[in-house]
Design a protein around this nucleic acid. Structure first.
Lengths: 145, 145
DNA sequence: CTGGTTGCAAAACGTTTGCAACTCT
DNA sequence: AGAGTTGCAAACGTTTTGCAACCAG
């Protein structure tokens, strides 16, 4: 089951360590999490884990297509289990709120880019930016980023 | 003319300094530039300018709607004169190439977000990500970010 | 004159790297 | 045993902050 991990590692001569298992578990438990939050979560669960190791594990897990990451605004990237990656993030520059939407939203754009340029859009990799209804209403919006 | 700057500053009780004028000139000359490049440019032109001041001036100029910035990939943001802000950036995660396209590309998405959620899309603020034709062709693409 | 502005040095932030110690297989 | 892996400390690049000196109005 979770030994998609074990198998994929062994195939490549890599090792299954407690840290890697914990990082993957944390990503799956949190759904949306930064490297920092992942480390913290593992520690709350009684594990020990260096931030450096989290970065290396996430890199590895992304290579194995078990996790994916998204850039939302300026901060650190957020990691998702590969199974829950399929949505577009839309972020308000005013209040910082992030909404998840169906990838459907960008289907037309994806098609156009593919047909015209052969470009394969990764609709989930970066969050769309703008101003939500509330922040549009609130006069000259002091945008954050 | 360029004293949209002077006027706007005075209205708010702020001061027109050589540094602020130089930063705005550099942004206009370069069209696409990071804070670092802006500082360098000013120094090449014989001015002196601290990086800290560039950050503060850009913040200010953005507040005055004279410049705007875009996030392209992981690196520092790029600043544009407000007059040349109107295009979408599309970035390949494989080779890092960035293409500028008409904002038209996202017009449909912008309309949908506005109608459905009252969300005002800022189509230019972040670059769309994906893989260009070349990088799609090149086998298992080792994506960079 | 005097409050806005600058430069410098230092801190903050997220991320990466070198290296010795350690551990999975 | 031996290659892969970890943790630590230090370096990195970008951005922010505190503060004294400065200068535009």
């Amino acid at each position: 089951m979770s030994d998609a991990l074990a198998d994929q590692l062994h195939e490549r001569g890599l090792r299954l360590t407690a840290q890697r298992r914990r990082v993957l578990e944390a990503v799956r438990a949190l759904r949306h999490a930064t490297p920092d939050q992942i480390a913290e979560r593992v520690r709350e669960d009684g594990g020990s884990l260096n931030l450096t190791t989290v970065y290396r594990a996430l890199d590895l897990l992304e290579g194995l297509a078990l996790v994916r990451h998204t850039h939302i605004g300026h901060g650190p990237p957020t990691y998702h289990p590969a199974e829950h990656y399929d949505h577009v993030h839309v972020r308000c520059n005013g209040c910082g709120d992030v909404e998840s939407m169906s990838t459907e939203l960008l289907a037309g754009v994806a098609r156009e880019l593919m047909e015209r340029d052969g470009f394969r859009l990764d609709a989930n990799h970066v969050a769309l930016a703008g101003l939500c209804a509330k922040c549009v209403a609130a006069a000259p919006p002091a945008e954050k980023e």
